[in-house]
Amino acid sequence: MAQDHPLRPWLEQQAERIERLCEARGLWVQCQGGVVTPRLVRFHLLVHPSIPLKRLLSLEEEMALALEAPRVRFCREGGLLALELPRPQPAIVALLPLQASLDPLPPFTALLGRDSAGAPLLLRLSSPEVTHVLIAGTTGSGKTALARTILSSLALANDPDDLRFLLVDPKGQGFAPFQGLPHLAAPILRQGAEVQEHVGRLLQEMAWREEAGIRRPRVLLVVDEVADLLATEPTLAEPLTRLAARGRSAGLHLLLCTQKPTAEALGSLLRANIPCRLVGRVVSAQEAVVASGIRGTRAEQLLGRGDFVLVTGGETIRFQAAYIHGQEILAMVEMLRDEHLKQGQATALRAARRVPLPAHWVTRLLGSLRAHPSETGQAAGARRSR
């Protein structure tokens, strides 16, 4: 932790409290630095080899009380043991300045936010460990906001001729700001009949692409509250399952949001074919297992409001989701639509040559928003990619 960090007095006080409580319980533990992220503080712990990990884990409630925190969480990454707790004044991880600070993202890669070490976390749709994504969590966990972040990040980094979106928004609120985005393969869908029609067309497209050996343009089908949609339109379960099972080879991907990621709500085959999970706060350890597909994520201890764990390839990474305001999305859509219309023939030529969008687009958008301020936050370097 930086010597001149504004939270330094508080950090030193908390480190002393951690060591004192452990000493009172007969445990030899020392705090050896850590990381301060926009949402969390992570204390790195040096623990005597004779101390069983279970004894430390049993102290979580006592530790939260001693640190005056709503909850704390012990976690292990490799050979590092750490204690995570909320920072007293959390900061927003704003998508636009963070993405503007990075090198151009690889194709079909979204910026999720910052991981528990403070580094930007990327998600590559074309990776075999990703392909399809399920976002799960209770109300207030930030599911729809995270889906909007993923869509915005992808739209800013990929040409509409390389990546298209098909958005299903039964409530008509979550994805409304994206109406008019040049990446949309159709207007935003709300009614069951039109969803059935377009999903059926995707199945035909998949069959044609498999026969022709074609993957581009990639298509991302995004459904908000998919369990509710399947409850009213149960016949959609079979085509969604087919897309999940065979879509990757045809360049077709799913991004599904739900509060109820159970096999009863989604179908066991659909769940089994979604390898990547983004899990927000849930109410119990049992629901954390249901949402993530594995034990030990401890998603029931997350803070909500964008605090997520990424589960893919047997690895679990906690992160704070980046945020983009609705007004920022509207400005992005207007800019991308205007640029797409202006370029005309040049757009088709660029797509044919596989030349990415100019890297300065995000910076230009950020500059225009600073002229008309909305919600923004910090930025820094890059690390992980999935």
Rank of each mutant, 00 (worst) to 15 (best):
H198I: 00
Q179M: 01
W208P: 01
R190T: 12
G174Q: 14
Q204Y: 14
G192C: 13
R190L: 13
Q191V: 05
P187H: 03
M206I: 00
V195M: 03
H183I: 09
L184R: 14
Q173S: 13
V195T: 04
L181S: 14
F175H: 08
G180I: 04
E205R: 02
P187F: 12
L184C: 00
L189K: 05
H183D: 12
F178I: 07
E197M: 05
E205N: 04
P187R: 03
L181I: 13
V195A: 02
P187L: 01
A193D: 14
P177H: 10
E197I: 04
F178M: 06
A185L: 15
A176H: 12
L184M: 08
L181H: 09
R190N: 07
G192Q: 14
E197L: 07
A185N: 12
G200E: 06
A207I: 15
F175A: 11
F178A: 08
Q196D: 06
W208F: 13
V195P: 03
Q191F: 05
Q204C: 05
A185T: 12
G174F: 10
E197V: 06
G174P: 13
L184Q: 02
E205L: 11
F175M: 15
G192Y: 10
Q196R: 12
L184Y: 00
A193K: 01
P187S: 04
A193Y: 06
L203S: 07
Q204T: 03
G200F: 03
L181M: 13
G192N: 14
G180E: 14
W208K: 15
L203D: 10
L189E: 04
F178S: 10
A185P: 09
H183F: 12
P182N: 02
P182K: 09
G180D: 14
P187E: 00
R190V: 08
Q179K: 08
R190E: 12
G180M: 09
G200C: 10
G200K: 00
A207G: 02
L203G: 03
L202K: 00
G174R: 07
Q196T: 01
F175N: 02
W208N: 02
L203E: 01
I188C: 05
G192P: 01
I188P: 02
E197P: 07
L202N: 01
Q204A: 10
A207T: 06
A186Q: 15
F175R: 09
H198W: 08
Q179W: 02
E205P: 00
L181D: 10
P177C: 13
P182R: 06
Q196F: 06
L184H: 03
L202W: 00
I188Y: 07
A176I: 01
A186M: 11
Q204V: 06
A185S: 11
G200Q: 09
A207W: 01
E197A: 09
W208E: 07
E205Y: 09
I188K: 01
L181A: 08
A176G: 02
G192S: 03
E194F: 00
L189V: 01
G192L: 07
E197G: 01
R201W: 08
P182L: 13
A176Y: 02
R201F: 00
G192H: 12
F175V: 10
G192W: 04
F178T: 11
L203V: 04
E194T: 05
P182D: 15
L203H: 03
G180P: 11
I188E: 06
W208T: 10
V195N: 07
F175E: 15
V199C: 10
R201H: 08
A186I: 12
W208S: 05
